[in-house]
Every structure is written in structure tokens, then in C-alpha cells.
């Protein structure tokens, strides 16, 4: 749930990057942190293991400037993707306004993407939210691996797996090179802002 401060005219919006372990959620935020440093006032917070896996979450506050007289503060979070961390994933989803689902487009990850998306659906139900109503963007990440001859799912296939019922915006991306990382971010911010405006009217 976004929080609106009418006195200081600040809107805080929570966007969560969700998806299977090693899919590239943290890499998305790291790219955003480097690329948009002007819009980021504080350090990225990463609660991680020694092996650089997300343990609890990453947090990156992102200033969008003014929209209709309100200052928009986007709070970007990632969840830990490893299967065993579902309890913490649920905690991070508390009060979420918009979600980027980062799928790993490698062929061998097909099942894991589907399982992770199904669990997102269940976790949202726990907060009386619905995956069909919440602003959601899908990202099919790691497509750069195609150039190295690693089998990558065709977008039509992965889209059929994950998006045939949801029918939400989706992007092929490479969090490593930044390909479509800003586009994914812009899309989720605009969908989320539209949805918040609707709720307020």
C-alpha cells in the first residue's frame, strides 16, 4: 500500500522484483543504481549471504521527481529467490504496490519460473491481493546468453508459460548489460502510478 503524505506532498510507492533464485533481480537493481545515480540519494542496501545471494532483500530508493505536484519516491525491493526463503519473500511483499517478475530465460529454468510465479500468486493471496489485479510486468532476463550458444527459451514459449492468463506487459532483457532494464522499470512505475491514482479517485 502506497503511503501519501499530504503535508509534504510525498507519495511513497513500493515496487518488488520477484522471481526464481539467480534470475537477476539484484542485478537489475545494481544496474539501476549505477545508471540513475542522480535520482538515487542513498546507498543501496543489500542483505545478502557471503555468496552474494539475497538473504532478505535489496532496497533502493529512487526519486522520480514531481508528478501532479507530488514528489514520487519509488522504493525498489528484491526478494530472495531461493526456494527455502519463502517466509522472507512473503515479508517483503507486505504492502507491495507493483511487481516486476524477473524470469530466467534459460531453457533449463523453465520449470522454476513457473513454480516461482505460482508461489507469487499464493503469497499475494495471503495479503488478500491478486496477481490479476496488482500492477505487474514480466521480464525475460539473460537473453544475452543466446550469443554464447546457451539455450534460451523463445519469447513466445516463455510468454505462453507465464503470461497466457495474466496478459501483462513483458520485456526480453539482460540485467547484466542493462538491455530493457530501464524500460521494465519505467513500465512498472507508470502502471503502478496509474493504479494508485485510480484507487484515490
Amino acid at each position: 500500500m502506497s503511503f501519501i503524505n499530504l503535508r509534504e506532498k510525498i507519495v511513497q510507492v513500493k515496487i518488488v522484483y520477484y522471481g526464481p533464485g539467480r534470475g537477476g533481480k539484484t542485478t537489475n537493481l545494481e544496474y539501476i543504481n549505477r545508471k540513475f545515480s542522480k535520482q538515487i540519494q542513498s546507498e543501496m542496501v543489500s542483505l545478502k549471504t557471503h555468496g552474494d545471494r539475497t538473504l532478505f532483500f535489496d532496497f533502493l530508493p529512487f526519486d522520480m521527481g514531481q508528478i501532479k505536484g507530488y514528489e514520487l519516491k519509488i522504493q525498489l525491493y528484491t526478494v530472495p529467490g531461493q526456494v527455502k526463503y519463502n517466509a522472507t519473500r512473503k515479508l517483503v511483499l507486505k504492502g507491495v504496490d507493483g511487481i516486476v517478475f524477473v524470469a530466467d530465460a534459460q531453457e533449463q529454468m523453465r520449470e522454476k519460473n513457473i513454480r516461482s510465479l505460482n508461489q507469487l500468486h499464493e503469497n499475494l493471496l495471503g495479503y488478500k491481493e491478486s496477481i490479476f489485479r496488482i500492477p505487474l510486468v514480466l521480464q525475460y532476463n539473460k537473453v544475452d546468453l543466446r550469443n554464447q550458444g546457451i539455450p534460451i527459451l523463445p519469447t513466445s514459449v516463455i510468454n505462453k508459460d507465464l503470461n497466457s492468463k495474466l496478459k501483462v506487459p513483458y520485456f526480453e532483457a539482460s540485467a547484466l548489460t542493462g538491455y530493457n532494464v530501464p524500460e521494465t522499470l519505467k513500465k512498472i512505475i507508470s502502471s503502478t502510478v496509474v493504479s494508485i491514482q485510480k484507487k484515490l479517485l
Partner: peptide, 15 residues
Amino acid sequence: DVYSFAALAAGNFAT
């Protein structure tokens, strides 16, 4: 840095 602090505090409390 109150924004980072708030994110961590909410996580801490929830945990």
C-alpha cells in the same frame, strides 16, 4: 538516512 532505515526496521520487526 531515514528511508533505508525504515525499510530495514520494517524488515527487522516483521522478522
